[in-house]
Design a protein around this nucleic acid. Structure first.
Lengths: 114, 114
DNA sequence: AAAATACTTAAGTATTCGCTTGACAATCAA
DNA sequence: TTGATTGTCAAGCGAATACTTAAGTATTTT
C-alpha cells in the first residue's frame, strides 16, 4: 500500500523547500560536496542568519543533513530526499503516458466502454 | 553548452509552481487525463477563481497546457515540464554520487592529490 | 584572559501569496 | 429572448515568507 500520510507530508515539505530559488542554490552548491554554513553563505548575497533559516527548512524536509563538530556545522545533501521528489514526478508522468497507450487501444478496438 | 539563462528561469517557475500543494493536487488530477476547469475545481475546496489563478501559474511554468473550445477550457499535463524538473534533481544527485566514487578512488589509491 | 570565529536565536518588517468577493463576458439550452 | 453554465478579471485582505538587525553562546586562537 503506497503513499502513506507521512510520505505525503514529506513530499509536501520537500517541494516547498525546493520552491525557493535560494534554497535550490544551496542544494546545488551542496551537490558538489559537504561544506560549512559560512562557506555556503559566502556566494549568496544574504546574511548568515538567513542561510541558517534556509538550512532549517532544508533539514526538516530531509533534503539536507548537518552535523556540528566544534563550532562549525557541516552540511551535506541527503540524496534520498531528491529521489523521493523525482519519483513523485515520474509517477505523474507515467500515469499520463499510460493513458496514451490505453487511448491507442481504444482507437484500434473502437468499442467496449469503461 | 547546457543550462541557458532561459532554462534556469524555466526551472525556477516549475519548482515555484510545484511548491504549492493545491497546484500539485491539480497536476495529480490532470495526470489521470484532461478535464475542464470546473471539473478540476470540484474536489478542491476553493472557488473557481482561485483554481483559474493556479492554472495561470501552472501554464506559465509550462507544466500544463489549456485550450478553450466554446465556453469550456480543457486542461492537460505537459510532461516535458515535469521531466525538466526531474532532470534537475537527477543531475544534483549524480554529481553527489560521482563524488562518492572519487572518494572511493582516493581511499584505495591514497595518494596523488588534485 | 582577551579577541576572534562560527554560528544561534529572537524580534521586527516589507513583500509575496493564496484566497475570496463581486462584477462581467461569452456560450449554450429552453 | 431569457436563463443557466462556464469561465475571466480586478480589487482587497489576512497569513505566510524571506529577509534584516541585534544580541547572545560556544569554541578556537593568540
Amino acid at each position: 500500500m503506497p503513499s502513506h500520510k507521512a510520505d505525503i507530508d514529506h513530499i509536501d515539505q520537500i517541494f516547498r523547500a525546493l520552491g525557493d530559488p535560494t534554497r535550490r542554490a544551496i542544494v546545488e552548491k551542496l551537490s558538489e560536496g559537504p561544506i560549512s554554513v559560512s562557506q555556503l553563505a559566502q556566494p549568496l548575497n544574504i546574511t548568515l542568519a538567513a542561510v541558517v533559516q534556509h538550512l532549517q527548512v532544508l533539514e526538516e524536509s530531509g533534503l539536507v543533513q548537518t552535523e556540528k563538530v566544534g563550532r562549525v556545522r557541516t552540511c551535506r545533501i541527503d540524496p534520498a530526499g531528491l529521489s523521493l521528489a523525482e519519483q513523485w514526478m515520474a509517477d505523474r508522468r507515467s500515469v499520463w503516458e499510460r493513458r496514451f497507450d490505453r487511448l491507442g487501444d481504444l482507437l484500434v478496438e473502437s468499442d467496449e466502454s469503461e
